[in-house]
């Protein structure tokens, strides 16, 4: 299993480097823009708007706390943009490690070895977790460099909390799509469901803030469990962690049952 983990990390080295640099640079840029937002008075403007227009925050992010670095990062970086990136990241990584590997015959080659299907599942799953940790560390590093560049003091407890839940969300989404891929072996279903989970969560969470009838369904969205602005105010909710970890574990358990038994072509 460790052998497979190392091989997977080696195979994905370009992906890890590219995404780490990309996310770090994006995080760095977001903090470079902070001084411009801090003094813009957008938050005061929002306070004067009627409630109907305040609902727009779902589309533009929460701008009620732009004057503090943590509020700015929560509303503009972690709340709407990072989940979008995580969705794309999850689908690409998970499809690559599951259905793409099966289509190219690599899963068959692995299964011809003295390697159980469960070990195959976990060998790659551990690689997914490590890749998610690596990209999260890169993102935090970008924030650190950005904070140094614009001479901003970040509340590192808040950044750690946000990063931790973001990490859980990325592991949860990637594991979910990876498990769909291993359980079905079908690219169309895996990509379709992966995009549905990512884009659906994004649309549901952003529009539910403006559309009343969507609000009861918003809990279906995975992004509901990464409430960045609430994390800044109240810390990590244990229920969000339980849901994200629960979905991850449930996906793995279902895959153990399905992937062990199905045909691999």
């Amino acid at each position: 299993m460790f052998n497979l983990f190392l091989k997977t990390m080696y195979d994905k080295r370009i992906f890890i480097i590219a995404w780490s640099i990309g996310l770090a640079f994006f995080a760095y840029l977001m903090l470079l823009f902070f001084p411009a937002f801090k003094d813009s008075g957008l938050d005061q403007l929002l306070a004067t708007l009627p409630p109907e227009l305040k609902a727009l925050k779902g589309m533009i992010g929460d701008i009620s706390a732009l004057s503090t670095p943590s509020g700015y990062l929560a509303g503009q970086f972690f709340d709407i943009r990072m989940p979008m990136f995580i969705s794309v990241f999850s689908v690409i990584l998970a499809v690559g490690l599951s259905v793409k590997d099966e289509e190219e015959g690599y899963i068959r080659t692995l299964l011809a070895l003295p390697l159980s299907r469960i070990k195959l599942l976990f060998g790659k799953l551990i690689a997914i977790v490590v890749i998610c940790v690596a990209t999260t560390i890169a993102t935090v590093s970008g924030l650190y460099l950005g904070a140094l560049s614009v001479n901003v003091n970040l509340d590192w407890t808040v950044v750690s909390n946000l990063s931790l839940v973001m990490l859980l969300l990325s592991i949860c989404m990637t594991t979910l799509v990876y498990c769909i891929g291993l359980s079905t072996g079908k690219r169309g279903i895996t990509m379709g469901l992966g995009i549905l989970v990512g884009a659906g969560s994004f649309l549901l969470t952003t529009f539910a803030k403006s559309v009343d009838w969507l609000q009861p369904y918003e809990k279906v969205s995975l992004f509901h469990y990464f409430p960045a602005v609430d994390i800044v105010k109240n810390g990590i909710s244990i229920w969000d962690v339980v849901v994200l970890v629960g979905i991850t574990i449930l996906s793995i358990l279902l895959t153990i049952i399905l992937f062990r038994r199905r045909d691999v072509r």
Partner: peptide
């Protein structure tokens, strides 16, 4: 069976004419 075939594989060698070798290696 798919779930236990790996137990026999230490004693089995396998190759195909179009085997998917790990091309990055």
């Amino acid at each position: 069976l798919p779930e236990n075939a790996h137990k026999m594989h230490p004693k089995v060698g396998f190759a195909t004419g179009d085997m998917s070798l790990f091309t990055n290696l």
